[in-house]
Design a protein around this nucleic acid. Structure first.
Lengths: 202, 202
DNA sequence: GTCTATAGGCTGATAGAC
DNA sequence: GTCTATCAGCCTATAGAC
């Protein structure tokens, strides 16, 4: 009986269509502009039908943020793969900033949200979420830096957060203050990672 | 004829009453929750009457953000007054974080807003706005650091932005991800400013 | 100056017909 | 599964009475 499988496939295709349209909307107009009505119109559906695939707007946003975390994870993992820890740090910084500046609406949704998607990505959820794994990539780079003598007198967690907040600051200031003239973010990211890497030992 | 002056005084008192109530609302519930209706209810007024004092919600928010910038400026100025540049840096970092963590809704409004209050505070507006002056305090500390040999091979502006984005990252990550367990922000700020201060010369 | 009343929107979500 | 119609609420802003 293939008809049951066909129905399930069609159902998941439809879910994906909805997610794609939602992603388009928040990319172009931001998360605040994502309404069920607008979304329905985009996929030529009635608003009511979306509720057959997603419990509510919150769940939709939740799943969108998972897509974002996955994209970020992919970019960070690739960068962190470099053999020398210091190269991995610079590449990770560049990748983080590139992701944030290239996907401001998604970055906002994930890291600057009024809602609590990060908590969902980290806390109560599956231990293997993209968010947790991305944080793992950061921790790993920090650990390798310390074994190369960089900031080895500081707790690992604090070094990791120092790196993260430095990069997050560069991205989020730019997103929040979009019309201000600032130093190019790639340049600032490089400066930040070089500053951190230059602190050797105690 | 004191009656004209009395009317003007009463008018500005009423304006202040509205601003105070608005500040209370955004402090407790965030800027998104600030509506003209809710504001009117709080001061026991009709919604329509608020429009006699403020052109629209945007102008109200604009003036609120100026209050915030002024508070921040006061804290930063005091900190930056320390005689040794490095002490000024640490104190400024502590003050910035204290302001941001202590006033998350206002910090959000000013630096993480969807609207463009920072542009108003810096760009087209008066050259003597609190925002411009706060940035001036930061620039001054950066200049003094460089004349003490800290990061003197980097353009002044970039050092200033490095400091700013580091502190902003600490504050805004905490505000955006409120339920995550992170290192205390004062500790991270100290780590960040010490890291920067430790980079001497070329 | 302050009010009531209202125009003209928007929103998330659901009941019930088909 | 999908629709129409609708509930119940929110919002900014304004016109016009007092």
């Amino acid at each position: 009986m293939g008809s049951k499988e066909r129905r399930e496939r069609e159902r998941s295709e439809q879910r994906q269509r909805i997610l794609d349209a939602a992603l388009q909307i928040i990319t172009k107009e931001g998360f605040a502009a994502l309404s069920m009505r607008k979304l329905a119109e985009k996929i030529e559906y009635s608003p009511a039908s979306i509720y057959l695939y997603f419990r509510n707007r919150e769940q939709l946003a939740q799943e969108l943020s998972e897509v974002g975390f996955n994209d970020l994870l992919l970019m960070l993992s690739a960068a962190a793969g470099l053999p020398r820890a210091i190269d991995a740090l610079h590449a990770m910084g560049a990748a983080y900033v590139k992701y944030g500046i290239g996907n401001p609406a998604m970055y906002r949704l994930i890291f600057m949200g009024d809602s609590e998607f990060i908590d969902a990505a980290f806390g109560n959820q599956s231990k293997d979420s993209a968010g947790v794994r991305a944080y793992g990539v950061l921790l790993d780079v920090a650990r390798r830096l310390q074994s190369d003598g960089v900031m080895k007198n500081v707790p690992l967690i604090e070094l990791a957060e120092l790196i993260w907040t430095a990069l997050h600051g560069i991205v989020s200031l730019r997103i929040g203050c979009s019309r201000m003239k600032l130093t190019p973010p790639e340049r600032l990211a490089r400066l930040a990672t070089e500053t951190i890497a230059s602190v050797t030992g105690d």
